[in-house]
Amino acid sequence: MQIREKTSLITGGANGIGFLYAHELLRHDAKCVYIMDLDNGDGKEAVQKLEAEFGKGRARFFPCDVTNSEHFTDNFQAVIDTCGQLDILINNAGIMDDSRWDFMIDLNFKALVRGSLLAMDHMGKHNGGNGGTIVNVSSIVGLTPTPFFSIYSGTKHAVVGFSLGLRGSYEKTGVRVLVMCPGITKTPLITECSDKTLEFVQKEDLINGLEKSILQAPEKVASAMIDLIEMGENGAVWVAECNEPPYAIETPHYSAHRKPI
């Protein structure tokens, strides 16, 4: 997909990597970016910054709690009523906070599922749409577990599994489903994570591990997102880590990992 003149919706796009996704989409000549996030002032500020750089009408903010199914559905429809045709959805909203695991599951997985299904209903050729692209944001810990954030890791594994399941509907819907898995990135999600673990987690090991890790710049992930949207095949799972170029991974059949008992 060429991003030029396409319309995009980003959940959790008011700040952090989500805001950088919006910035990069506009820098690559997207027609308009719609940001959906909490109504805490960040969304309006984000739109002001984007419009100051790219021009009036290039960004819109829709305050929304995506964990509220009715609120999310109503605001998604409001976006459609505004833009007419949505081409790209980036399900980015999420937290890493195992101490709030119930809410985290609602945000990281249930809201992502809801957003994907809403986009399928709108974009899908089976429903009279023109096709499009859904990018679901997972993590490298959605590919390999971590003992420090086992519940967060579980939500991100669920994102990968759900997305790979949807890819089989492409011939009917015309909607590509892609997955972005960022590595350890210099954002508050990582820099403020040590107080968000379960109480039995070895926090010293977590802190020591982070100190030894390469924290990539969030701009690297945003750049990889553009490449994924423009070049990724349906069902592609890409990793962006260690400030290196992104790469795709294969998901072999489980029997490939068979070992004798």
Results as ranks from 00 to 15, higher is better:
residue 124 G to A: 02
residue 261 I to A: 14
residue 107 L to G: 02
residue 91 N to P: 05
residue 106 D to Q: 11
residue 125 K to V: 01
residue 15 N to F: 04
residue 109 F to I: 01
residue 99 S to T: 12
residue 143 L to C: 13
residue 68 N to K: 09
residue 144 T to S: 10
residue 155 T to V: 09
residue 93 A to R: 12
residue 67 T to Q: 04
residue 71 H to R: 06
residue 104 M to W: 03
residue 22 A to N: 09
residue 34 Y to G: 01
residue 63 P to E: 07
residue 35 I to Q: 04
residue 201 V to T: 12
residue 200 F to C: 00
residue 173 T to L: 02
residue 6 K to I: 03
residue 72 F to V: 00
residue 157 H to Q: 15
residue 73 T to E: 13
residue 158 A to F: 06
residue 249 I to S: 08
residue 227 D to G: 15
residue 49 K to T: 13
residue 229 I to K: 06
residue 95 I to A: 12
residue 217 A to H: 14
residue 152 Y to H: 06
residue 187 T to L: 06
residue 83 C to R: 03
residue 65 D to C: 06
residue 172 K to N: 02
residue 139 S to G: 12
residue 131 G to P: 13
residue 178 L to E: 03
residue 35 I to P: 03
residue 117 L to D: 07
residue 22 A to M: 06
residue 170 Y to W: 05
residue 193 C to N: 11
residue 104 M to R: 07
residue 43 G to Y: 09
residue 160 V to Q: 04
residue 33 V to C: 00
residue 170 Y to Q: 10
residue 189 L to W: 05
residue 184 I to V: 12
residue 174 G to M: 08
residue 239 V to M: 06
residue 79 V to Y: 03
residue 73 T to R: 15
residue 184 I to H: 05
residue 9 L to H: 09
residue 214 I to G: 05
residue 10 I to W: 03
residue 87 D to K: 02
residue 36 M to G: 14
residue 197 T to V: 09
residue 249 I to P: 08
residue 131 G to W: 04
residue 212 K to M: 03
residue 189 L to A: 14
residue 115 G to A: 10
residue 219 E to N: 14
residue 181 C to L: 04
residue 158 A to W: 11
residue 181 C to D: 14
residue 113 V to T: 07
residue 231 M to F: 15
residue 33 V to I: 01
residue 92 N to I: 08
residue 38 L to K: 13
residue 41 G to Q: 14
residue 191 T to V: 15
residue 27 R to V: 01
residue 153 S to P: 07
residue 79 V to M: 03
residue 166 L to N: 07
residue 216 Q to D: 00
residue 39 D to R: 12
residue 87 D to N: 12
residue 188 P to V: 02
residue 220 K to D: 14
residue 95 I to K: 15
residue 65 D to R: 10
residue 261 I to K: 14
residue 131 G to C: 06
residue 135 V to Y: 10
residue 58 R to V: 01
residue 160 V to D: 10
residue 203 K to M: 04
residue 104 M to I: 11
residue 90 I to V: 07
residue 13 G to A: 00
residue 166 L to V: 07
residue 145 P to M: 03
residue 21 Y to A: 01
residue 97 D to N: 14
residue 33 V to A: 13
residue 110 K to H: 13
residue 21 Y to C: 05
residue 152 Y to V: 00
residue 49 K to E: 07
residue 71 H to K: 09
residue 210 L to M: 15
residue 236 A to H: 08
residue 41 G to I: 01
residue 83 C to W: 00
residue 146 T to E: 05
residue 207 I to F: 09
residue 26 L to V: 00
residue 258 R to F: 15
residue 225 M to G: 08
residue 253 H to A: 08
residue 241 E to P: 06
residue 188 P to I: 07
residue 14 A to K: 01
residue 64 C to E: 08
residue 182 P to W: 12
residue 161 G to Y: 09
residue 206 L to I: 00
residue 195 D to A: 15
residue 39 D to P: 07
residue 167 R to T: 14
residue 206 L to A: 09
residue 216 Q to I: 00
residue 143 L to W: 04
residue 30 A to C: 05
residue 165 G to Y: 04
residue 212 K to G: 09
residue 99 S to E: 06
residue 144 T to A: 10
residue 92 N to H: 13
residue 77 Q to Y: 13
residue 154 G to A: 15
residue 71 H to C: 06
residue 73 T to Y: 13
residue 124 G to T: 01
residue 5 E to A: 02
residue 19 F to W: 13
residue 190 I to G: 10
residue 115 G to K: 09
